[in-house]
Amino acid sequence: MGRSSLIEVCGLNSYYHKRQVLFDIRFGIQDTGITVIMGVSGCGKTTILRHLIGLKRTGPGEILVDGRDLGKFSEREMQGYRRRIGVLFQSGALFNSMTVSENIAVPLKVHTRLASETIHIMALIKLNLLGLTEFGGYMPSQLSGGMRKRAGLARALAMDPEILFVDEPSSGLDPITAAGLDRLILELRDALGMTIVVVTHELESAFRIADRLIVMDRGRILAAGSPEEIRASHNARVRQFLERTSDPRGVDPSGYLSRIVGSETMGSES
């Protein structure tokens, strides 16, 4: 592709309570552009995200950031890395005891020596960016789900991060609000040249915003490429995921019928 990889995942394996959830994951996150990791719930995409932001560090394999393995970062190096990234969690993860503006100001107050007035203006700029100008003084509990996410995004952007990670942007949102959030993410890429990594299970959203798609299934990468490449894929499981059909072999994979009827006699379903 010719672009430099900001983050390179090399053969990552991961376990939750002794169960393996990721198998030999390999991909790179390019500088500038939106990479979308998509798959059904439970395929391991959120686990990959947690590894990328340093919340999960076990499991053989490496994640190279500027050539060094994230899993081996000292606390100092991890703090340095985390100051360059912003994370939007699924629910927004706003701190309940403070207003939206105060939420955005938290990293600025802790990490910089900027004056309160400067920080206040920075918060306003971010609020405006997310269409929340009048809501700075609101408490998180007074906001709708969509607004909470946008507020969470404003806070994730407070320190002008190089890389933005977004966990399930559309979850809990109606299609219109979700599309609005997608538009915002695209704007961030275009106007600020940001590198953005999105984890989602929503097909439309993924194809709407992705420069690069990584399709996952049961802990493995099924396919990776541009949206056009993925759409044209001949891989049966990828097609199944895209077309949202039941198992292509037409056989009842979970054994539902044999359980309910008590025998294997029902056979093929298509």
Binding site: M78, V87, P107, H111, G152, R155, M159
Partner: peptide, 10 residues
Amino acid sequence: EQIDALECMA
């Protein structure tokens, strides 16, 4: 996930 958010904000 607010504690995770704190950690990710260094």
